[in-house]
Simulated assay, not measured.
Amino acid sequence: MSASEKNHFDVVIIGGAIMGSCVAYFLKQASPAIEVAVVEPDPTYEFASTLRASGGARRLFSCPENIAMSNFSIAFIKQFPQAMAVNGEAAHLDWIEQGYLFIVHGEHMRLIEDNARTQRSLGAEIHILDRQGLRDLFPSMHVDDLDGGAYSPRDGWCDPSSFLQGVKKKARALGVQFIQDKVTALGTSQHAVTSATLASGRVLGAEHFVNTAGPWASEICDMIGMPLPVSPLRRFEHYFTGQNKIEPLPYVKDLARLAFRPEGAGYSGGLVNSDEPRGFNFDVDHDYFERVVWPALAHRFPTAFEGSKCHRTWSGLYEQCELDGNPIIGNWQGRFDNFHVSAGFSGHGMMHAPAAGRAIAEQILTGRQQTIDLSRLGYARVENNQPYRENGIL
């Protein structure tokens, strides 16, 4: 039987963007004989969150699990050209290590100082800056209404498209089968998910199933009656330029969710509206930059952005975890133990995909997450309605 005709695998992964591709890669890396299929309806990834992401990777979190995942993922990204090489050809990935900066005021200074202690305990290089420290490092920034910030110079960003294509190409080279199709139903027995029915009529059986469908993850879980508090949240990304050249900037984020970074001759970023109605909406509000983003930019960096110009705006979806903003990583223990979820990353999917992919692979192959204990990010907190939130800026 050819690979294209095969209908039973050890693992079937639902969703083939960066999350699903990372799960597949780590499964094959750890167990070369394992048979893995990834089902993805659109191999162009036109609406996938991965290709609409900003590409940032940072350690500025409060939850130890998120910091540990970032530590692994950033190391993975730095080793990417060699680790993802196929037939001796290095994988292309532009990693820009230009740092992250969270700027805050008031009581949030205490939060970032507390978070810095946790971050440093896990090996991150973090500098807590007061107002004058911000002014010294970033003289173009308006800081009179700020009390300081957290600066992580070893963080940065990369190209999401190259990241996805590199992992997918490597997974293919290791023997992962990517199937262009859509899962329309899941079959179950008393204690296990047993099959995935595809839009083409093909039925795939497997020992394990993994839901990495991103903003569509809750629709997959609905097929087996598994409540998943993950909703699609539209957000805009803009490419814009400033009127004056200023000092090199890190990835800048503030309390209002303004977030932007250098990109070529300009900048890429936006300001997320957390109150945006949930749903699969890819329409672009072409006035959003002038109405919402530009005032925030011009206030914070008046020298550069009082005369900024937006050249392009595009929309994408956060797979927003409505419970607490943190991802859900693990299986449905006690109900369908062979059904695993890695979803709800709320804007942090690309940066944590390698670590989450490894964790799911470890759980499938050994029965537990061996390298990083992500149990507090598991599905049990959803069942028990016990949020586990970040403390400070998301």
Rank of each mutant, 00 (worst) to 15 (best):
C310S: 13
A353T: 14
D42F: 13
D10W: 08
T118G: 05
G225N: 00
S161N: 10
A213L: 06
N87G: 05
A68S: 15
R135C: 02
S308W: 07
F102D: 13
A17E: 13
E247Q: 14
L394H: 13
T241Y: 04
P232G: 03
G56N: 13
I360R: 12
V143C: 09
G242P: 02
L93N: 04
Q177S: 08
A68I: 08
D283A: 15
C321M: 06
I128A: 08
I14K: 12
L134W: 12
L271D: 09
R291A: 13
P153R: 13
P387Q: 09
I67Y: 09
F76L: 01
C321G: 01
P387Y: 10
G347C: 11
A90Q: 15
G106A: 14
G20H: 02
E89D: 11
Q370M: 10
R291W: 07
G205S: 15
L174P: 05
R358H: 05
V39L: 03
A83I: 05
Q370C: 11
E390H: 05
C221Y: 00
D10V: 08
Q98A: 15
A217S: 13
D130L: 10
L204K: 13
A217Y: 02
H348G: 03
D94L: 12
L233E: 12
N338L: 12
Y251M: 15
Y151G: 08
E125F: 09
E207Y: 12
V210C: 08
G279W: 07
A298D: 14
Y25P: 01
A206E: 07
I179H: 12
D42N: 15
I126C: 05
D254Y: 04
K28N: 02
R131I: 09
T194C: 09
G148D: 04
S152I: 03
G279Q: 01
E319L: 01
